[in-house]
Design a protein around this nucleic acid. Structure first.
Lengths: 221, 221
DNA sequence: AACTAAATTTACTTAATAGTAAAAACTGGA
DNA sequence: TCCAGTTTTTACTATTAAGTAAATTTAGTT
């Protein structure tokens, strides 16, 4: 285990092992994406990877460890989506975030689909779980102080209510996409529409007009 | 098969068969509710029902037929939820519907949980499926003409947008409950909050005030 | 080239599944 | 009470899963 004198060819071996692992993990994602977690077996993964089953066990441990790894990768990826410099305007802000998410999802469709569904089935989005998925997402959904200070939002409705609804909009959109109910374009439309509606419920008359325009332009395209 | 002269004791037999079927179906629901659809097997059902496996096959056919039956029962139940005389006021209307749903869910908790989850996993809420689940639910969520005529809602936002958001609120609430994320009280709160927010986005100033009051009273209890 | 630890495979075990044919038991009705 | 048809059970097949020990092969280092 130490990289002292004992292990001779360990530096290169570990690196190669990582590559093989990744190759097989990618394949696993593709398999689960096409046939569901149900139909996913170690045997099948081994066969398709042109490798024997003990090799899979050697590289990943038990079957569930593969899925655990996917989900932990998901949590990392999702964390990376909270970007530094979002626009100040609420509408632009919402578009910016959903745009980022879609870019990521497009880059790695199978992975996100599979990981989101696994996480859902494992109950990992449960509000009380300490993996931070829920808390993180709630944080991103919070309306900003500036929006109230500049009078775009009035504050007649508790910011936490807005936040919860925006959070739910994102959540349902992701779920519908991962379930295959809608594609990424439809997800964008649905999520933005729900978010704009939430903002409209507490918007100043002027900003309300802008939100209405945005909503109808979402549906006219 | 005919109830003519051939089959002698068939009238009573068929009735008893129905009773046994129902007893075992109820047990199946309880088993799935406690251990998930994953852990549900014909063997286990037979064991717990103190019956042999071929008996299960005799009564239900293949394994999936049991789940199909649950889901078709669900569709029937859900259809019965669209009641004749809902209140005219939007707020009361929303409370009325969610109240009905909760009453039903409480009456038959395990059944609804299991059936909703099964339906979800089978993709039965897919908008394009001809089982009517989706269309039915969309119909119920539609804002009424009277609300626009009486000036409670202004019509600055397309009614279909409101409908979609209300529908989504109901859907997510049911899903969160079935997933065990929230209990029925929390479901009520979450769904009503989201619906009121949707109405608020297009409400007249006077009705907007009432909606805001309702929302904050939801969160103070 | 040769050595050695790591990685892979062969060949297997254990355990659980869905489903079935045929014998046995049971049930309602005459 | 006894009979015929229904229902259940016994005892089984066939399939498939996860996982493992030991032999074999492979790969990096010297």
């Amino acid at each position: 285990m130490e990289n002292s004198g004992i292990a001779r060819g360990n530096i290169a071996r570990q690196a190669n092992k990582k590559l093989r692992r990744q190759r097989i993990l990618d394949l696993a994602v593709r398999l689960i994406a096409s046939d569901g977690i149900e139909g996913f077996t170690i045997n099948r993964l081994a066969r398709e990877a042109r490798v024997s089953t003990p090799t899979i066990h050697n590289l990943f441990g038990k079957k569930n460890d593969i899925i655990k790894e996917l989900v932990s990768n998901l949590i990392q990826h999702m964390g990376g989506l909270a970007v530094k410099s979002p626009p100040i305007d609420p509408i632009e802000n919402a578009k910016f975030f959903i745009g980022n998410i879609i870019t990521e999802f497009e880059k790695n469709t199978d992975f996100f689909r599979v990981a989101l569904m696994s996480a859902e089935q494992l109950g990992l989005f449960h509000p009380k779980l300490p993996n931070g998925l829920h808390q993180q997402a709630q944080q991103v959904a919070r309306p900003r102080k500036e929006w109230y200070e500049s009078g775009l939002l009035l504050g007649n409705i508790e910011p936490s209510v807005i936040r919860e609804t925006v959070h739910n909009s994102n959540r349902l959109g992701r779920l519908d996409w991962a379930s295959g109910y809608i594609d990424l374009n439809q997800m964008r439309r649905q999520v933005l529409q729900n978010i704009f509606l939430a903002y409209a419920s507490d918007a100043s008359p002027e900003y309300h007009v802008r939100l209405c325009e945005e909503i109808s332009s979402l549906n006219s395209q």
